[in-house]
Every structure is written in structure tokens, then in C-alpha cells.
Amino acid sequence: MAILVFVESAEGKIKKTSIEAVAYAHALGGPVTAIALGAVEKAELEALGKYGAQKVLHVADERLSQGIIQAYATVLEKALQDESADLLVLANSSLGTPVAARVATKIGASLASNVVELPKTDGGFVVKRSIYTGKAFAWVELKNQKKVIALRKNAADIKEVGSPAQVTPYSVTLGDADFATKITSSEKATGEVLLPEANIVVSGGRGMKGPEHWGILEELAKTLHAATGCSKPVSDMGWRPHHEHVGQTGVKVAPQLYIAVGISGAIQHLAGVNSSKYIVVINKDPEAPFFKAADYGIVGDAFEIIPKLTEAIKAAK
């Protein structure tokens, strides 16, 4: 089955979750065509070949350097047709999922988002989705010939399986309707590790007492090359930006390691972190519910433990 993978980029670089999407498509058997839109570095595009893309299409249209949902859906619909691909794979992201919804509707495809692993293909095509905000899974059969799946982080392992691919310029005629929404400006955290992509997350709660105390968490995060996160009250009070808020009503993370400092572990917070591989909890209250969801725990005062932890990590390097 020919597969098209939509790869997202930020500041010219392909996102890790999109490389996972290429790896996922490769593991399914391919042949795999990757497509990127807007300004992306050439070497980044070529490198997709190493992860399993036989072919890389690039739409260099400057207008597509911004993630305009309708325009992207139009491009992908055409590319699926030109490549005779029956399956579109992309990352479950703030852009990927809305685009997946529109493309699937355009082409009459079976759609599944929040997919967490490779499908079962003995007798049908059955995917595993995360539901109830990480508290359960559903196995869902995608019955139509055409399929669109949006992958959650860590749904596939990235492996080098090939050599750099040739990049083919590609273009699609877009109309006014495709640009009905206009992006007037954006604010992006630059140079930081992005929370949804991070392998390690250092997260702080109300136990940190105030925004002026975040320095020790940032220092720890920097040492670990980690992203910083927080609990909902912390972003509600404006101690940290909204996009760092983890949980049921915030970002759902799936890092290798989640370090929770001064967070009680309310069920709504846990809903955003229960896909983490390992969880470390640091809390001065031995009864904090978070310890029940943790792999490692320290009962103690964050203001004493965190600087020591940063030192110990530096020493172990």
C-alpha cells in the first residue's frame, strides 16, 4: 500500500514527531512518499530518506510556511491522488489533527487520531487509539480502502534504514477559499526544547510558591536538555505561559522521563503525563497522590532537593 506522510517543520527543521510518522509508514511496508510544505532546509528534507521515505515532495510556496489548515488539506488531497496513495500518516499535533480531519472528509477515508502503535493487519486494519485522556485504549478497525491516521508521540521508533532521498519540487494550485483564514502574527518560544517533543520534562506545581522560584527548575531542565512544564493553577495564575500547562485540559506529554516537583498529582494532571515512560516525583508531603503514579520518589523540600539534583546530574556526566 502506497503511503503518503505529511511532515511538519519548525524554523526549517523537520519535527521529531514527523520523523516518527515516516518511521511508522516505513514499518508498515510502504512505499513511502514524504511531503513537506513551506520553507524547510534541503538537507533536512533529504535526510527523510534515511528514516524510510523513498521519495520526498516539497511544496516551496512561501504562503505555506504558515500552517493554514484548509490550504494544507487541499495540497494533501492532491498529493494522495498523484501518488496513488491510500494511506496518509501524520503527527497528532495542533496542525496535523485538524488537517487530518479535513483531508479524510475530502477523500472519504477512515480516520483515526491519537494512534499509539503499529496497526494489526491480520484480518483488516486495526489501530490502537488512546482514549479517556490516557486512561484507556480503543482498538478500532479502519474499514475504508482509504485511511488517514494521526500518530501520538512515540508511536514508532526512529531508525536509520536507508540513505538520503532526492527532493522533488511539487506544486498545487490554491484558491482564495484555501486562504480564508489569515495568520496575522505568531509568538513562538525559540531555542527552547518544545514540550510536546521533549524526551525529558521538568514540571513544577503550586509547591514552587511563585514564578520567582522557577530558576532552579530551569537550571535543572537546561542540565538535562529538558522542556519545562507546569500544573494548571501555575499557568492560571500566570506564573508560567499557558502552553506549558500539562494535563487533562493542557498538553499531553509522553517523554522518557517526567520530573514533577511540588505537584500534588490530581487525576486531571496525571491524565496528561500517564504516557511517560518514567516518572520522578519530588514532594514534601509523603501522602501526595502523585507518588502512586511514580517510578521514583523523594519526600523533601524542592528548594533543597532540586539544586542537589542538578549538581548530581552534572557530576554524573
Binding site: 472519504g108 480516520l111 478497525e141 516525583v281 517510578d295
Partner: peptide, 18 residues
């Protein structure tokens, strides 16, 4: 185009090491 086959609960978490 989709049909639910079954639900599944995640495996229980092992105990925490303090």
C-alpha cells in the same frame, strides 16, 4: 468507515521506589 473492536486498560503501574 470505522468500527470499534474492543477497549483495553493500561497495565497497572508497579510500585514506586523511594
Amino acid at each position: 468507515g470505522v468500527k470499534l473492536q474492543k477497549f483495553e486498560l493500561p497495565p497497572p503501574k508497579g510500585s514506586v521506589k523511594m
